[in-house]
């Protein structure tokens, strides 16, 4: 049995590495996760407190009714299970978290999950060291009886599925190539410096900085420096 779960995982990884179509990646993961007792999952970036979840969702295999409810109510911000993904590197199950009776909004999220048929889940946090963190949240409508090995297999498979999904949505070769100076100007813009302040810091002319900033905006396909900073963060060019 041990040997079999390893074969399942390694075959999955070999297959998913070759996939570039998000729905193919989703289908391939769903077949395997279902066989391990988790037929539902969502692979998503994690929104900041003032953001909605939907723009960050990469692969959605949650029950439709649950996804509609979860996003309409913006549950992520009260969901103890989801929030925990931002505070740990290690995968965890719903049952690993204790939700106190006083945490009414977190309890409501769990109740609503159950009313949509979901009884347990397994969450894999993923930090890719740029400003965008992701998680793959598996869920099930039957009591989960997965062994540690099966969860380890789900863990590693979800990481490779996420890698394939990220490549599918944002191929590396489409990352804009910035020169060192352009990157420096972007860094100082992110620190709130004006073009003049940047020219002083870097010891170059003001018009030169303005030219770099213009080229930056063109390469990042944005209209303002504020948008350039946001795009730079999103692409992992600068730290947030």
């Amino acid at each position: 049995m041990t040997l079999q779960i390893e074969h399942v995982a390694f075959d999955f990884i070999d297959d998913v590495k070759r996939l570039r179509d998000p729905s193919a990646i989703l289908d391939r993961l769903r077949i395997t996760s279902a066989s391990l007792g988790y037929p539902y999952f969502i692979l998503t970036g994690l929104p900041l407190p003032n953001q909605r979840l939907e723009p960050f969702v990469m692969l959605n295999a949650w029950p439709e009714a649950w996804y509609e409810r979860y996003t309409a109510e913006e549950h992520f911000h009260h969901d103890r299970v989801g929030q925990a993904a931002m505070r740990t590197t290690e995968p965890y199950r719903w049952s690993d978290l204790a939700i106190g009776a006083e945490d009414r909004s977190a309890l409501r999220v769990m109740d609503e999950a159950q009313s949509c048929g979901l009884v347990d889940g397994f969450i894999v946090p993923m930090f890719s060291s740029d400003s965008w963190q992701q998680a793959c949240a598996f869920a099930t409508d039957r009591p989960a009886q997965s062994s540690d090995r099966e969860l380890a297999a789900l863990h590693v498979m979800s990481v490779f599925a996420a890698g394939a999904a990220r490549a599918a949505f944002q191929p590396l070769r489409d990352l804009p190539e910035l020169t060192t100076r352009e990157r420096e100007c972007l860094h100082w813009a992110a620190a709130g410096k004006s073009a003049w302040e940047t020219s002083q810091i870097l010891g170059i002319g003001l018009e030169t900085v303005r030219t770099y900033r213009r080229t930056l905006r063109t390469k990042l396909d944005v209209a303002t420096m504020a948008q350039a900073v946001a795009e730079g963060c999103r692409l992992g060019i600068i730290a947030s």
């Binding site: 540690d148 990481v159 990220r166």
Partner: peptide, 29 residues
């Protein structure tokens, strides 16, 4: 390595081969 490092290599476009399933060692996968 800690399993949580794996996504980092994908960011670099590296070709990663795992040699086995993750195991928890001293509390970390």
């Amino acid at each position: 390595q800690e399993t949580y490092w794996l996504p980092r290599w994908a960011d670099f476009g590296w070709d990663v081969e795992v040699l086995g399933l993750p195991q928890t060692i001293a509390g970390t996968s």
